Simulated scan of single mutants.
Amino acid sequence: MTEAAVGRPTRGPVRGLLAGLGDAVIGTLRWPCVVAALSFAVGRAAFAPTTWRRPVRQEFVRMMRIAGTRAVPSTLGAAVLVGIAMVFQALYWLGAAGQEQLVGTVLTGVLVREVAPVVVGLMLAGRAGTLTLVELGTVRGSARYHVLQSSGIDPFLLLVVPRVLAFALAGLSLTILFVAGALVSGWMVSFATGSRGVGLLGFLDDVLRAMGPSDFALLPLKGLLIGGVVAAICCAAALGAPWLAATPTRLIPRGFAAAILGTFVVSGLVSVVL
């Protein structure tokens, strides 16, 4: 028996159980802590004038075009489908039940508070989030990442900061656009079928009157947070695990699933708080 084997403490069943439980807890909390730290660092770097050099500004504009501008048609298409499936149905059935005064309250509680931010977050994760995983995974899994560092370029400022901020602004803009598109399309279908006699402005006024101060704060806050968290998760998954970035077939499914989970977690937490 060697000296190392003699000096090694034996682990009993209780200690083994506690060690396994501790490893599971640490493994579960590791990524949320990494994403939270990454988001905090992005928020701090966003207000530093030295951050916004020309390459960072160009990357920010490019990501705004990818995550925001190019996502407008698909966002409007999804808004029309949700408007027909939700807004029109709410107008029709509440009108049939003689409860038209509840239309604004129902749409505010379901569409504005829950559905719109989550759908936009899922679309960001599926479109721009997947592209981020591919791009950053390619950089991290090759020598380009070390080339950036050796050239005096901070990969965090060039690759992470513009993406997180662009996703956050895109999430805010697309969420507002989604709500407007769903309300207008749902009213148009209802008006075309003759089941809604109130004009468009009157209908929108009913919805706005049903929204309280927390609703006006919740909608942009969810859009910003969900967009930023989706980008932070994708960046952390690609840059925080070189072994995972080297295998895209493992990186993309894990990063995409984590981004979807983050969307639901952020939406639920903000809803609970507000």
Rank of each mutant, 00 (worst) to 15 (best):
L218H: 03
L218F: 03
L218D: 03
L219F: 09
L219K: 00
P220N: 02
P220L: 01
P220M: 02
L221G: 15
L221C: 14
L221W: 05
L221E: 07
G223F: 03
G223T: 06
L224R: 01
L224D: 01
L224E: 11
L224G: 03
L224N: 00
L225N: 04
L225K: 00
L225Q: 02
L225D: 03
I226R: 09
I226K: 06
G227W: 01
G228Y: 03
G228N: 04
G228P: 04
G228D: 06
G228F: 01
V229I: 13
V229G: 08
V230W: 09
V230T: 11
V230Q: 01
A231W: 03
A231L: 10
A231N: 06
A232N: 02
I233S: 13
I233K: 07
I233E: 10
C234M: 06
C234E: 08
C234V: 12
C234R: 02
C234F: 04
C235K: 09
A236M: 11
A236Q: 12
A236D: 08
A236E: 11
A237R: 11
A237F: 11
A237N: 05
A237L: 11
A237G: 02
A237K: 12
A238H: 07
A238V: 07
A238P: 05
A238E: 06
L239D: 12
L239V: 07
L239R: 00
G240I: 03
G240Q: 10
A241K: 12
A241V: 07
A241D: 15
A241Y: 14
P242T: 12
P242C: 14
P242L: 12
P242E: 11
P242N: 13
P242H: 13
W243Q: 15
W243H: 15
W243N: 15
W243C: 09
L244V: 05
L244Q: 13
A245C: 06
A245P: 09
A246Q: 14
A246K: 08
A246V: 05
T247Q: 15
T247V: 15
T247R: 15
P248N: 08
P248L: 06
P248E: 02
